[in-house]
Design a protein around this nucleic acid. Structure first.
Length: 485
RNA sequence: GGCGACGUAGCCAAGUGGCAAGGCAGGGGUCUGCAAAACCCCGACCGCGGGUUCGAAUCCCGCCGUCGCCUCCA
């Protein structure tokens, strides 16, 4: 068994083989920080968080680089294109860098909430202007780019393999081109590596060709190379950027440095709303912050992971409600296990039969993840395992502490470390706090009522608590409580 | 027009040559003072039409439908 990943470069699943033994370099296209992140962003970054986490689970040392685009991303490719950050700054009447900073913080806030581990390096495009100028210079020297009116354009027809990632034929590109062609381009298919700044353009830097700013694709090329070297293992991002962004990244990098760029291209499919793509321009997006006012972060994460990353995910509140119930079911046995662990259980070895159940499910889980990060399948394994755990813990079989710990460890490792779905401390199992002490008191008083067979009082307490979102469960070994979803 | 993806039970969603996972919802049952939770049982022959094969949801051809990229978008 070995990890297989679907590589967009070859359009096939391939056995993952890192360039350097035991080490993986991964670059993922990060957000352009001019607005709050939406569910579409959640899908990409959760996807690559899973890649990141699973590679580490397999024992690789991963260096994960994800850029922050704070300059160079224009509203369109025509001459009138305004920088997205600058445009937002104008609207909010602040400095462009305040916009970038504000939304960068917002982005990390959202990712932290979704339990997405931070990348190891989050380089800013604006912090790598000299490198991007150097890229443009190299391309000019080698004859792959030309200067025109203060801008530097990559000449697509000078690079025969242009189109290899997105499966596009260069000769056919021209016909379908709808873009307003910049008069500075020699060929409409060429793209900007460096752009001359118009008089009103705020974000500008000095360059050999006059004042300007980098093209959108340039940052990824130079930052990937700077922090990961060439070639590196994995390049990730959203499928909608396969062309022209990713395609151009490869072309200019391989042309400038004369080396292969990235080995494996892993791209995730989109989030849709009523079947159509969730996107900024369509205005049909839900921000993560907004979704989190209605749903738990783990529900959102569970929802994203319950479809494969290469499939589209249709977002609706109903789907999230059903995900919330599914998530509750997923963590039910975890909660049960941890409650049992809090009580002293007998010493002794791990139950032999159940040790085998654990081993089998772990094997199935790994097989699912090895198959191109099949998280829906991995979740199914977790559900199957949960059924086994529920059956075991609800039976009269004597339970050793070691068995419970083995179960808990399974969940902590696969559900927690790998999927990031099962926190080490479930939010409702707070011990010692005032809330927990009060609940203990209420449960004790209710137990007394039940002992007297005063069902009216007992039921009233349960109903009132339910109104407050607290669920009581009377089990043979005592009453437990938790917050409803 | 070019390139590409998808179409599996009421809904969501794995499977990609050998008798169709899992979740949500629903029905029946066990347990429970009642509930909740849990456990057990119940549902699809895989868009349509052909073809290849001993055998296809899974491969090939055609059709229908939905969507994506080709222009900013994770």
């Amino acid at each position: 068994m070995a990890l297989q990943v679907y590589n967009y470069l070859t359009r096939r699943k391939e056995v993952f083989q890192p360039i350097h033994e035991g080490f993986v370099g991964m670059y993922v296209c990060g957000p352009t920080v001019y607005g709050h992140a939406h569910i579409g962003h959640a899908k990409v970054y959760i996807t690559f968080d899973i890649v990141h986490r699973y590679l580490e689970y397999l024992g690789y040392r991963v260096r994960y680089v994800q850029n922050i685009t704070d300059v160079g991303h224009l509203t369109d490719d025509a001459d009138e294109g305004e920088d997205k950050i600058a445009q937002q700054a104008r609207k909010e009447r602040v400095e462009p860098m305040e916009i970038a900073e504000f939304y960068t913080r917002s982005y990390f806030e959202d990712m932290d909430a979704l339990n997405v581990l931070r990348p190891d390096i989050s380089p800013r495009a604006s912090g790598h202007i000299p490198e991007q100028i150097e890229l443009a210079q190299l391309l000019i020297e080698k004859g792959y780019a030309y200067v025109s009116n203060g801008s530097v354009f990559f000449s697509v027809k000078s690079w025969p393999s242009y189109g290899k990632l997105s499966g596009r034929n260069i000769d056919e590109l021209e016909e379908g081109a709808r873009i307003a062609v910049s008069p500075d381009k020699r060929d409409p298919r060429d793209f900007a590596v460096w752009r001359a700044a118009k008089p009103g353009h705020i974000m500008r830097w000095k360059s050999p060709w006059g004042e300007g700013f980098p093209g959108w694709h340039a940052e990824c090329s130079v930052m990937a190379m700077k922090y990961l070297g060439l070639p590196f293992d994995i390049h990730g991002g959203g499928l909608e950027n396969i062309f022209p962004h990713n395609e151009s990244e490869i072309a200019q990098s391989e042309a400038a440095y004369g080396k292969e760029f990235a080995r494996y291209w892993i791209l995730n499919n989109m989030v849709t709303v009523n079947g159509v793509k969730m996107g900024k321009s369509l205005g049909n997006f839900t921000t993560i912050k907004d979704a989190l006012t209605r749903h738990n972060p783990m529900t959102l994460r569970f929802f994203i992971l319950s479809s494969h990353y290469r499939s589209t995910t249709d977002f609706t509140d109903e789907a999230l409600d059903s995900a919330a119930r599914g998530y509750e079911r997923l963590i039910g046995p975890v909660r049960l296990t941890r409650e049992r662990l809090r009580r002293a259980e007998s010493d002794g070895e791990v139950d032999v039969t159940f040790a085998e159940v654990i081993r089998q499910h772990k094997e199935q889980f790994v097989a699912a993840m090895d198959d191109d990060f099949n998280t829906p399948q991995a979740l199914a394994v977790l559900f199957d395992f949960g059924r086994e755990v529920n059956t075991l813990l609800n039976s009269d079989r004597p339970m050793t502490r070691a068995t419970l710990e083995a179960i808990d460890n399974f969940y902590r490792t696969l559900g927690g470390n790998v999927l990031g779905l099962i926190p080490d401390n479930l939010p409702t199992s707070t011990e010692g706090g005032l809330e927990a002490q009060l609940m203990e008191l209420i449960i004790r008083l209710r137990a007394e009522a039940r002992a007297r067979k005063d069902w009216a009082t007992a039921d009233a307490i349960r109903a009132e608590l339910a109104r407050l979102g607290i669920v009581l469960e009377d089990r043979p070994e005592g009453t437990t409580w938790r917050m409803a979803q």
